[in-house]
């Protein structure tokens, strides 16, 4: 199996504060790989090391078979990066943004311009080529940033929270776009704290918390491994949480307290009725568990901002 990314015991600290603390994983070519974790977990720092924006402090990082220490320029000529905030040139038009960037990549002449027009057409931006970037909507700016990353026809695409701050329509467009690029054989690595996105796009996800890798699996396996097919979610008054969690502990049911709710794992031995016989009917729902529940169970915190207990 050919590897697009090999990371061994990667470490990074800023001013004595450890941000990435010994992370190891591989990404095979052709995979869509997700780095999942709450804000400040260290996933963006890992991504910044991949794109060369942050130096590797300790450990090894190989991309496309090349060491980032000795072959940074060659690696950079074979990857495409979409940063948070797009990094577009507001003083230039859509076409000029791509033209200048393709010069940075070393492409000149009519061939380069043909490639730009082809890419603009592929994302329906061709009629906006002469528009200033500042006049585009957020969704269209993101589109432009995506095709800018494709100019070099990269083997690996690196995207930092590709759907952050997009409306639902643009988000769906992005997911379709990324699935299309994956089908074309590009390796994709994204960071996200959106569990739907991770489940929908990623072949495998790495769960990152406090600079460490806590698990790495397909989304389906992770959910299966930690919660099984169904969970029961109980919503209640915070003051009652102690009472209900004691009941669950007595019955040896796996559960996780989260804010004003409790998630409990269903088991064949406990049908719903058995489990809640005698409970004073708190708000209760049986549902499919998701990656957020997995994260919650492993770290005690959710994936979204401000969801920590």
């Amino acid at each position: 199996m050919e590897l697009a990314i090999e990371i061994r015991n990667l470490k990074k600290s800023f001013g004595g504060r450890s941000v990435v603390n010994g992370v190891t994983f591989d990404v095979p070519k052709g995979e869509c790989f997700g780095l999942l974790g709450p804000n400040g977990a260290g996933k963006t720092t890992i991504l910044r090391m991949l794109s060369g924006s942050t130096r590797v402090q300790e450990g090894e990082l190989f991309m496309l078979g090349l060491s980032i220490q000795s072959s940074l320029r060659e690696i950079k000529s074979r990857i495409g990066v979409v940063p948070q905030g797009d990094g577009l040139d507001p003083e230039l038009t859509v076409f000029e943004n791509l033209l200048i960037y393709s010069r940075y990549l070393g492409f000149q002449g009519l061939g380069a311009e043909d490639r730009i027009h082809e890419l603009l057409k592929s994302v329906a931006l061709d009629d906006r080529a002469e528009q200033l970037v500042d006049t585009l909507s957020g969704g269209l700016k993101r589109r432009l940033a995506f095709i800018r990353a494709l100019l070099a026809d990269p083997e690996l695409l690196i995207l930092d929270e590709p759907t952050a701050q997009l409306d639902p329509q643009a988000r769906n467009w992005t997911w379709d776009f990324l699935r299309g690029e994956r089908e074309r054989g590009r390796t994709i690595i994204i960071t996200t704290h959106d569990m739907t996105e991770a489940e929908l796009l990623c072949d495998r996800v790495a769960l990152i918390s406090k600079g460490r890798l806590i698990d790495l699996e397909t989304p389906k396996n992770l959910i299966e491994k930690y919660w099984g097919p169904e969970v029961i979610e109980l919503k209640m008054n915070r003051t009652d949480i102690g009472y209900y969690s004691n009941r669950l502990r007595e019955r040896k049911v796996e559960y996780q307290v989260f804010g004003d709710s409790i998630l409990a794992k269903t088991t064949p031995e406990f049908t719903q009725g058995d489990l809640f016989k005698g409970f004073k009917s708190p708000l209760m729902a049986v549902r499919k568990p998701n990656l957020n529940d997995v994260f919650l169970k492993l770290t005690g915190t959710g994936l979204q901002e401000g969801e920590s207990i």
């Binding site: 950079k76 990094g87 577009l88 040139d89 960037y101």
Partner: peptide
């Protein structure tokens, strides 16, 4: 503000 230097560094530019 525009982070144009950071974007340029995603290419072989140093």
């Amino acid at each position: 503000h525009t982070k144009l230097y950071h974007t340029a560094l995603y290419t072989p530019m140093m």
